[in-house]
Simulated assay, not measured.
Amino acid sequence: MIPNGGQMHTFTESSFLGNIGLCGSAVNRLCSSSASSPPDSLVVTPEEKEWVSKSDIYISAAIGFVVSLLVMYWSLLLNRKWREWYGYHLHRFVLKVFDQQDRRRSRRGRR
């Protein structure tokens, strides 16, 4: 049912064309218990709503991940200064990780 009052009175009947489920004074159609429920083809079950929202989240996450990777790789590819900084810090990180692993292995060997 189209609510009565406020801004709804400013719309003409042609504004509501194509919405077969609407009723009320704005469209000159009386609302009854059968007319107020939408047609079966337009009814969306809670399971369908949940599936749509989950799929939208997964698609958005995948697109965001791919775009962020592309931005990162393109910036490293095109900017020499960033590429050198990234390589330097990555090299330091890898050395620290392997140095820690070597120390752990040597401690285990002494026992």
Rank of each mutant, 00 (worst) to 15 (best):
I2M: 06
P3A: 10
G5M: 06
Q7S: 11
Q7C: 13
H9K: 13
H9Y: 01
T10M: 03
T12W: 00
E13M: 04
S14I: 00
S14A: 09
S14Y: 00
S15Q: 03
L17H: 05
L17C: 08
I20D: 07
I20W: 00
V27R: 02
R29G: 00
R29A: 01
S32W: 05
S36L: 12
S36Y: 03
P38G: 01
D40C: 03
D40M: 04
V43K: 09
V44H: 03
T45L: 07
E47N: 04
E48M: 08
K49T: 06
E50L: 15
E50A: 13
W51Y: 14
W51G: 07
K54M: 12
K54I: 11
D56C: 14
I57A: 14
I57E: 15
Y58R: 14
Y58V: 10
I59Q: 07
S60K: 08
A61Y: 04
V67L: 07
S68N: 02
S68P: 00
V71W: 06
Y73Q: 08
W74K: 06
L76F: 02
R80G: 10
K81C: 07
K81Q: 09
W82V: 03
R83M: 07
W85V: 12
Y86M: 13
H89I: 09
L90V: 11
H91E: 12
H91F: 15
F93Q: 14
V94G: 11
L95M: 15
K96N: 15
K96A: 15
F98S: 15
D99V: 14
D99W: 10
Q101M: 12
G109S: 12
R111A: 07
R111K: 09
